[in-house]
Design a protein around this nucleic acid. Sequence first.
DNA 1: CACCCAAATGTGAGCGTTAACATTCACCAG
DNA 2: CTGGTGAATGTTAACGCTCACATTTGGGTG
Lengths: 360, 360
Amino acid sequence: MRRAPNALPAAPGRTPKPPGMYDVARAAGVSHQTVSRVLNDHPSVRPETRLRVQTAIEALGYRRNTAARALVTRRSETIGVVTARSALYGPTSVLIGVEAAAREAGYFVSLVSLADASEKQMRAALEHFLDQSVEGVVVIAPSADVVEAALKVDLRVPMVTISALAQQPAGIYVTSVDHLLGARLAVRHLVGLGHRRIAHIAGPADSLDSSARTRGWRQELDAAGLPDGRLLVGDWSAETGYAAGLTLARDIPDAVFAGNDEMALGLLLALAESGITVPDDVSVVGFDDIPGAAFFSPRLTTVRQDFHALGSSCMTLLTSALAGQNPSAQVLVPPQLIIRASTAQRSVTTGHTVRIDAGL
Amino acid sequence: MRRAPNALPAAPGRTPKPPGMYDVARAAGVSHQTVSRVLNDHPSVRPETRLRVQTAIEALGYRRNTAARALVTRRSETIGVVTARSALYGPTSVLIGVEAAAREAGYFVSLVSLADASEKQMRAALEHFLDQSVEGVVVIAPSADVVEAALKVDLRVPMVTISALAQQPAGIYVTSVDHLLGARLAVRHLVGLGHRRIAHIAGPADSLDSSARTRGWRQELDAAGLPDGRLLVGDWSAETGYAAGLTLARDIPDAVFAGNDEMALGLLLALAESGITVPDDVSVVGFDDIPGAAFFSPRLTTVRQDFHALGSSCMTLLTSALAGQNPSAQVLVPPQLIIRASTAQRSVTTGHTVRIDAGL
DNA sequence: CACCCAAATGTGAGCGTTAACATTCACCAG
DNA sequence: CTGGTGAATGTTAACGCTCACATTTGGGTG
């Protein structure tokens, strides 16, 4: 067993008990309450006394006991974060972003990852957080059932969910990357390039992010006065992107908007194997800008999400809710279109318009 | 503000205080201590009494106050996890794996991600954990300086680091994926395919995982009686893999072992752009088996890590340390070689041996 | 049938902090 | 000089739990 190398002549053999407020108080020649006041920087403490106490704290290496504090105040400077037990790029990046933002805001984070979206699991997670006296909860919710499960548990603290809900439910705060906008940006880019038949490979049906992206695709097509495109459904995996690619290869559209980069990767492979050249024969846009997207073959045009901004947005919502304000708006973080080599002007040779267009 | 819909006729307007042990005790007609005994399943409680108490707990919706418990026991059923603030596939997957294993082992996790590997940051993180009375700490350490920083803080609880240290420092427990073995598996596969000049693109110099993989590459080359191969250094990014590929393209080896899949991706692109065909002209192996690796072009042969097993290994170490045993061995989790299409028998046309070899 | 022992249960004292209230002290108005 | 006032400090009581110890209970023994 490792023992703290402690200079104090403590009772032999025992781990020296960490000093408490009383010890500090004694050392500073004040009462424990004054120590408490210094710690919580209460105004009415003489500067001189404050200094004396601070010196004593320093000297003894005193650290306030959070359990005792939490016991009496029912506060813990901690927020709980619930995420799905997935190693996917999106959720994990969001988690890191939220953790960073929470720390910046002065909170610590307690983490629970859910093996599934059942209400039971969610309830257990949230109740655990409540037991810990967390001051707020962040739920990273990929699908509607996670949000629903979270809403069923009644929390005594504010909750913000990171989810692309079409509309904000009462009682919780919601923030998200603006997936719809991202999709529109992607499709708009494709339309601008002259593509008319724009297919979409969607993520899993229960994914909110995916629905929002699909909605964006439709809206932009609509706005451009283009007919509906072909819709295929995948599950975020390259595997399903590949399958979609095989299907698409039989009746190739002008362009494909893939719901995420991984599916775009699968798509790219299927296309290559089918002898279809990107971007000459068909343009491809992804979503996420995962590390590596810039080195797909061809380098992938995609939509980048700002996870750091998302984390901040999340904490802003939470802290203002904690401050008693009622931030009502659903905050959306704008994504960014990254144009690379997988998209190009519609080719005149394979396009469905005649050669004369090229001259215009 | 949302208010818990509570059936009890509580004092008007106030959030009803959650029931305590005394409330349960009264309801069950026993003393608070008996309730405590039931909670901690102490042996000497009559089954009938136990049942009565449990019924009362159920009825009142009683939940044990963790702060109070932590205050007296100085235990919290929580472990602290320190990780690097990175969205890379490796670290995040490890994090998810550890969280899952911790929950399985009955612990909750408190998370701190480090913006840098400074001792200051590490100290703050670990002291925060100590304040929270965590029972153990897991440090996911990509580089030696993180481990060193962690060692400098003197902890009163067991610590396990997940790091590919060449040898285990005293006082802490270490577990890791067996990167060295993984690299040897990869290189052995290459050697088995007849390749002799096997280059390596290493990860960043300060990465322990990278060093272990590089060491494995060297060892296996040695064991096969082959000359040292060409060594290039990247930083895990596809960008650097691409740069390495450009360099390698000028003097193409038989095969390349990339330190991770992302660099392999960059390498693949550089090779393709240089008119070099994989695996005909050169075989490529990656490391990680990131989602998508199976859909690189060509599908990437790589080494898969078992993050779930790693998490379990980590918790096994921690729980046995907690139980007072002294698990001394450094536990390594074996990885698995996944053979796909980026590796092939050494081509007779481009090989450095004459055609006659093919007939042997 | 008194006796003892172990099992089952109860009692009281903290754990380290903050909250509420009490006290002291210096200073100024009347 | 006295009373009042507010700032600075001290005292006491929770917070909800577990621990150590005290007490009760229910059988076997001799």
